[in-house]
Nucleic acid binder design. Sequence first.
DNA 1: AATGAATGAGGATTCATTCAT
DNA 2: GATGAATGAATCCTCATTCAT
Lengths: 195, 195, 195, 195
Amino acid sequence: MPRTGMEPLRRAALVDATIAEVGVHGAHAVTVGQIARRAGVSSALAHHYFGGKADLLVAAMRQILRDLGMAVRTELRDATTPEARVEAVLRASFEPANFRPEVIAAWLNFYVHAQIDAQAARLLRVYHRRLHSTLLYDLRACLGPHAEDGAETLAALIDGIYIRAALGPGAPDPTEATQRCMRVFNDMKERLHDG
Amino acid sequence: MPRTGMEPLRRAALVDATIAEVGVHGAHAVTVGQIARRAGVSSALAHHYFGGKADLLVAAMRQILRDLGMAVRTELRDATTPEARVEAVLRASFEPANFRPEVIAAWLNFYVHAQIDAQAARLLRVYHRRLHSTLLYDLRACLGPHAEDGAETLAALIDGIYIRAALGPGAPDPTEATQRCMRVFNDMKERLHDG
Amino acid sequence: MPRTGMEPLRRAALVDATIAEVGVHGAHAVTVGQIARRAGVSSALAHHYFGGKADLLVAAMRQILRDLGMAVRTELRDATTPEARVEAVLRASFEPANFRPEVIAAWLNFYVHAQIDAQAARLLRVYHRRLHSTLLYDLRACLGPHAEDGAETLAALIDGIYIRAALGPGAPDPTEATQRCMRVFNDMKERLHDG
Amino acid sequence: MPRTGMEPLRRAALVDATIAEVGVHGAHAVTVGQIARRAGVSSALAHHYFGGKADLLVAAMRQILRDLGMAVRTELRDATTPEARVEAVLRASFEPANFRPEVIAAWLNFYVHAQIDAQAARLLRVYHRRLHSTLLYDLRACLGPHAEDGAETLAALIDGIYIRAALGPGAPDPTEATQRCMRVFNDMKERLHDG
DNA sequence: AATGAATGAGGATTCATTCAT
DNA sequence: GATGAATGAATCCTCATTCAT
């Protein structure tokens, strides 16, 4: 059965399985055995490829963050105005592919995991910084002096919507989430022009 | 040493210790032994009084939610106008006593724990509903048709600020957190009056 | 609450509770707490009076054996012929007061307990010897050379009926049990006279 | 060291060890660690293969009952007349391989265990029924209307001899046990012919 | 490449027992 | 006389991890 060239497939399967199982059981409660079983391999193989449970978790987290980052880049491709770019970032954040219950649940778990695991914390910080600078760049053009506050507020709002989606029973609505953020964004712009 | 009437004291000490230790290690990673040690008792006593780890966690969560609820009620006491009441809720949410790193960390952990533990989930839902209806009542007077959206947005923003505070290294700033929410709230009011 | 002269009552209540709880849970599975609760006292008192769980078990066993012994003596009082005396012993063994499911269950448990506990083993041996000599005395008159074998056989049969009663769902029938033994006894007598 | 195909060997070793240790310490007092140590494996492996202590006990009990059943079938093979078949069953019951102190002790413990564990109770009931129907079939030919009573009596006598063997210090005598039962059986036949 | 076999370490939980009051 | 308070010790069980094949 062991054929050559299986490694990338196994790795991907294990990372996917990790995200799914972490979403269901939580980062700490999940066992390597559960993950491996879902991936259709032995738990020994998971160790063989990733070194240990912690590394598996980090790999899964990195995957989620990478998917999110790619969604942002993709959405940004066709956006020209600052306003459109901000909306692109928001749409990407709530893109159906990422804004699924299981991914959201995993994401929340990794947030918690980052409190303990240094590598996970680093990963998260990097992502936060990148999101922040992306938002800040465009918000400067729209909000001027309020840009910094606006970026923080929008980022917090995104996370807040995520965390609440993690608890709700059904699948969350990407469009509504985006619009909620856009409303806050538009209000900010108004504030600038009026005040 | 064993004197009568120790039970309430021990229970309180254990709940406090649970919050602190969960904040440090996470709900799942923490051991009853760690909690008991911090409370200055044996792990057997923790089981004796609470029945088990799960019950201990729920008791701690209930404590946090109760503290939060009491802070809200206290702040609301002197607030008369709807605007003041909304601000009171926000101030209460970020009150220094609750908005401490360890409590925030515990709170985030309970959020995750609620994905698995039904009782924890129930507790959280109750709190969400109460916060929602409190906000909604006052927002109706300020935002009219936008009240519902406003309540959801503010609640998500609060949670988002909490979760980000959970990751940040230092202690978060309660005043800044309140003001950030108030700015969003004021923007919403403007939207209503201008549009 | 503590009045003087309670000791004998408490002791009796604890012994009764022990028999009942051992019957339900087994000698090893039962906890001192369960016994004490049923007796309406604290587990600390059980230790105070009996020294420990093992002593409590022995006391309960001794009680059962004493009840059995008393039943034998009572039944023997009115028996004159050897045959009547043998029947008296059998009737006593299956006397409704002792041949109750809970007592039987406790008895079986003590049998097992005697494999480990030396004191319990001694108690049982004493009882066995006494029963044997009682039976033997009367059987000599009926069975002559077969008396020894007859005593062993009847004793084993009694135990066998007990153990099977311990498993059966409902309450066993004392009369039927006695008759079953009597039939074997009568057969033995026939064997002597015919052979 | 880990070679493939060890599972059946380990399982057998663990079951044997369980019988032996239960015989020494009792079903409830024995620890998985003791059993595993005797089997030469870690306690974790015992759990891995059997799931838990209860399952291990049931497996051991099933083994004893299976051995007993096989002995009966083997002895029955060469028996032609009803009398010979009855004696075959008795001989099988006291066959040296099964009528060893440790097995007897384990057997008695399982009897007690069956009072608590439903699965163990079922196992025992099945065995009882099988023994009963086997005996009944042959006794009908010998005892006619007394067959039912005879089967019950012999079964109880067997159990009684077992339980007394469990307490006695030395190894019991299989031949004597069989003959004791046979005498009772012969007496019954006499009763039928004479009465 | 992949796994079955095996275990050490650790955690929740239970319980007999002790002690001060 | 009686108990609430408290714990140490022990047990079951889980799981990440290792290793020979």
